[in-house]
Structures are given as C-alpha cells and as structure tokens.
Amino acid sequence: MSALDQIVEPGAGALLTVPAGGRLRIVDLHGNQAVDTLFYDAHDIDNRYSAFDTIRAQQAVYLTTGSRLMSTRGDELGIISDDTCGRHDTVGGACSQESNVIRYGGHTRHQHACRQTFLTLGAHAGIGQRQLTHNVNFFMNVPVTPSGELKFDDGLSAPGRYVEVTASRDLLVLISNCPQINNPCNGWNPTPVQLLGWW
C-alpha cells in the first residue's frame, strides 16, 4: 500500500513531505521527461540540497543508484536507492522564463517554465527566490566531456523507467515536471510522470 500515488502533468508540480526512511519513486511514464526536483530539510529549509556539494562528495557528475544527495551543510538529505534509468543530471539547473530568453530568444519569455512552478508551490513552505537553488533533473541527460564541454542530449530514459530516493531525514521535496519545449530534455514533447511513495 503506497502512501502516495499521484500523476503530475507537464507544467505542474508537487510539494511533498517525505519522512525519514520514506521512499519516493518517480516514474517516467512516457520516457525522456525531465523532472526538476529540490530537497530541503523539512525542519530547516536553509539546510537544502546542494548540487555541487553532491557532485564533489561522489567525485562524479551524474547521479544514479548510491548517489548521496548532500546539503549545503554537508548533511545527507537522501540517497538514490533504486534507478532503472541509470543517469540523472544535476548540473543543468531548472528552466526559467529568463534563461529561456537567453537561450532561445525573447519569444519564449512567456512560456511556462520550472521556476514558475517552484515559486508557486514553494510559497506554501516559505520557499521563495532566495531559497531556490540548483536542482536535480531526474531522467535528464547532460553529458560533460574531458575537454570541459557540456550539452543537452536526448534522454537515456524510456517509458516506465523510474528512480527512487530514500529520505535520510524528514524532507520537503519540491518537484516541477518540466514544460520545456525548446530543447530535447523532454524529447520535444513534455509528458506526465507518476509519483509513488512508501512511508
């Protein structure tokens, strides 16, 4: 019996409380769908996910099973406990209307973007602009090379693949199911994902 079973449409999101020891599974129902996700200590949102501390801790760029999701204070917020996709990004950040303008031009200024979802849902937990930080992009493929290049690539995911995070402490999890249509992060076609939770 799951404590959570929820479909999240592209452009929508979720703000979840996951207790320590709880397992949150995100299912990529249709494949190649980026799920932008932030983690906060539920009792102190200043102790929040840190993408680059996470990368340094594992001395590897991509996230997968065994990756410890670290906070700015060096605490383990959660751990990726299962992963049938194999690679997730935490370098590429979230899309915003402003970064869309920079990357794709002024005509994208009023397209919906992950930052809009983060701000809308985060407001319920005191998460505003200052509290937003560099996120995880589950199912997204952002290769980096030995010569220091970075690109957005077609995803490695496929319909039904999933990733599971086990909370190491009580967490707030802020999710935006990415609506981006200007690059291949969602296979040019944003689709719904499923959230499952056990706690």
């Binding site: 915003s96 920079i102 980096v144």
Partner: peptide
C-alpha cells in the same frame, strides 16, 4: 542583492563545464 550567480544557466547557455 537578491539576484545572484547561476552556474547551471551560465554553463548551459554557453555549452561549457568550466570557466574560461
């Protein structure tokens, strides 16, 4: 005093994983 450096946006906009 609110807006600040965004490394992910800096990198993905310029297709780099290093600062130069």
């Amino acid at each position: 005093r609110l807006d600040r450096l965004n490394i992910p946006d800096t990198l993905k906009s310029q297709m780099t994983a290093r600062i130069h």
